[in-house]
Amino acid sequence: MTGLPEPTVPRLRPGVRLTRDPARGELALLPERVVVLNDTAAAVLAHCDGTTSLAGIVERLAEEYEGVSAEDVRELLLRLAQRRVVDLHG
């Protein structure tokens, strides 16, 4: 148990931008910080629009990926919230 709130309707925090760099791959850009994402992490963040619930994000990911783990998505969002990349509640 981490003590963090559960993600409900996650969204990117203001000032966070997703982009793709030819050398580094999928990135989230923050002031003075770069987050290098693997492809599934980038796919999760692409669905964090502040209106789609955690369950909805998992559902959308299941259209692209076989064997999506809701627990993986939840853990990722909690870790990204700790680093101020996402807000967990829109």
Binding site: L30, E32, V36, D39, T40, E66, G67, L76
Partner: peptide, 24 residues
């Protein structure tokens, strides 16, 4: 006649952070 695109295999999402100390 349309083929559905094959789904990719899910793997654990992960990331690394780089503190740039400057505007990105």
């Amino acid at each position: 006649g349309k083929e559905l695109p094959a789904k990719k295999a899910w793997h654990r999402p992960d990331f690394v952070t780089i503190d740039t100390g400057m505007e990105v």
